[in-house]
Structures are given as C-alpha cells and as structure tokens.
Design a protein around this nucleic acid. Sequence first.
DNA 1: GGGAATTATTACCGGGACGTAATAAGGAGC
DNA 2: GCTCCTTATTACGTCCCGGTAATAATTCCC
Lengths: 73, 73
Amino acid sequence: MQGVMRTTQDLGLMVHGVRTRHQLTQAELATRLGVSQRYLSELETGKPKVLNAKLLSVLDQLGVELIYREVQE
Amino acid sequence: MQGVMRTTQDLGLMVHGVRTRHQLTQAELATRLGVSQRYLSELETGKPKVLNAKLLSVLDQLGVELIYREVQE
DNA sequence: GGGAATTATTACCGGGACGTAATAAGGAGC
DNA sequence: GCTCCTTATTACGTCCCGGTAATAATTCCC
C-alpha cells in the first residue's frame, strides 16, 4: 500500500490505517514506539504541528512530492 | 529524480540538488519560500532539528518508508 | 440507554525549533 | 594573498512542539 503525502491529513490517515490493520490501540502502539498516546492521536488526526507544515510547504514549492510505502517485513 | 528518504541527510542532499540545479543561492530560494537562509542551510546539511527525527523513527518502526520524487512542472 | 474501552482534547510546563542578525568558514577568480 | 560571494554556525529571543496527567468525547457491545 502506498500513496502520495501532500498534507498532514494524508500522513494521519496512513498511520491510522497501519495501526488498525495491526489491531493495536493508540496506547499500545505508543508504548512500543516510545511516544505518548496524545502524540499518536494528534498524528492520526492530522494536527499540523506533528509534521512540520513548513517543511511540506517547502517541498511542495520545490516541486518535490513525498510518497509513503509500506514495506513488507 | 527520486529516492528513499531515510534520514535528515537524505532530505538535505535532495533539497541541495534541487536548489543547485535551479541555480539559486540559499538566500534567493529562502526569500522565495518565505524561510530564512539559516533554515535552508540547516535543512541542506541535514540538521536533525529540521525534520523531526522522531517522526522518521516512528515511520520506520511502522514499516513505512518515504520516497521523494521531483515532479516536472 | 448504560458502561467500558478507546480516542480526542485541554492545561501546564520544559525543551527544542526557527527567526534575526552577526560572524566564521569556504571557494572562486584575480 | 586579497576580495567577493556563498554557505555554515553562533547568540539570543520568541514561539511552538510534545510530554504528563486529566478530562471530554466517541465508539462499541450488551
């Protein structure tokens, strides 16, 4: 599964999808990743603060797009 | 031109390449993008502060890789 | 609807990011 | 070497990010 990441919302939806497919709660995943449940929640709901809106803007203006791709492990 | 973005260094090298191919100085590009020359410099030299090292770590642990791709305009 | 589990949001606080401005460090050409 | 142009780094101040902890809000199942 892969897609283009233009906004923080794209990022959030993708992370949400990965997590639910793994059948993990935010709290469980947060513990494993060493982050807070609050952070994961904001990440998944696309709060701009999580991924530098500035960086996305810069890349966009540079004509660079980001693609995320799930790697099979 | 495209590639995998695993580290802040990858990001920096990519931005540097785009900028030099456009024959722009950091100061010129910074003005156009609305960021500081200091920011661009740190971006290109891969200072961890610019792209959340935490976010890259989270994505990596989730089994997600980021790919950047230059779009022809 | 009621209750439990999960997620989203808030307040507060400490640390880090980024702006300006200045300065140091390279590099190119003479 | 010297000068000019460009890039990297520093000091300082401000603001945002993200942690903890608590509290809404939501979802799900009965």
